[in-house]
Computed example of a mutant assay.
Amino acid sequence: MASTPSVGGGGGLAQPLVVSAPVLGFAWDSKAGTLRQIDGVPGAAHVDASANTGDGFALAVAADSHDYALLLDAKGALYLATLAGGVPQQISTGPWSGVAISASGSYAVAYANTGTAPQLISGLPQQPAFHTMDAQGMHISSAAVGDDGTALLAAGVSSGGTAVLAVPMGASAVRALTVGAVGGMAFVPRTDRALVADAASGAMTQLTRVNTEPSAAAVNGAKLAQPVGLDVSADGRWALVANAAGMVTRIDLSGQTQPATAKCGCSPTTVATLSGAAFRLTEAGTATGWIVDAGGAAPRVLFVPALPGQTKAEGGQ
Rank of each mutant, 00 (worst) to 15 (best):
A117K: 04
A306Q: 13
V248C: 00
A297Q: 07
A278I: 04
P299Q: 01
G105Y: 09
Q90W: 13
S254G: 14
A218C: 04
D293A: 07
G149L: 10
A51H: 07
G309R: 02
A144E: 06
S102Q: 05
I251M: 12
T150N: 04
G160H: 13
G236P: 14
T249P: 03
S3I: 11
M133C: 10
T191Y: 11
G255W: 06
T114V: 04
G276Y: 07
H66A: 11
S254N: 07
G296A: 15
G236Y: 03
G25I: 01
L274M: 12
P88G: 11
A171S: 11
A163V: 03
S20W: 14
F26I: 12
M138F: 14
G105E: 13
F279K: 01
T162A: 01
A166G: 09
A69H: 08
T178Y: 10
P16G: 11
F26R: 10
A181C: 04
T273V: 03
A58Y: 10
P125I: 01
R237K: 14
V188D: 03
V248R: 00
A186S: 14
P189T: 06
Q317E: 13
T4W: 01
Q119Y: 06
N113T: 11
L59T: 02
Q15S: 13
P259A: 11
A100D: 15
W290C: 05
A262W: 03
R250H: 00
M247K: 11
K75R: 12
T311S: 13
P308C: 01
Q226G: 03
A203G: 02
D48E: 13
Q317N: 12
D39A: 12
D198G: 09
T53H: 09
A110N: 12
R175P: 00
T178R: 11
H46T: 15
A45T: 06
V99P: 04
G9M: 02
S6M: 14
R209S: 15
A44D: 15
G229C: 00
A203I: 05
Q256M: 14
T191V: 08
P88T: 12
G11S: 05
P308T: 09
H66Y: 10
A32W: 04
E314G: 13
Q90C: 04
A260C: 05
V301W: 02
V47S: 08
D55C: 01
D252K: 02
G255L: 03
S30F: 08
F26Y: 14
S201P: 11
L307R: 07
S97G: 15
V19P: 01
P189A: 08
N52H: 09
L165M: 15
D192A: 09
A21M: 14
S3P: 04
A155E: 10
S267T: 12
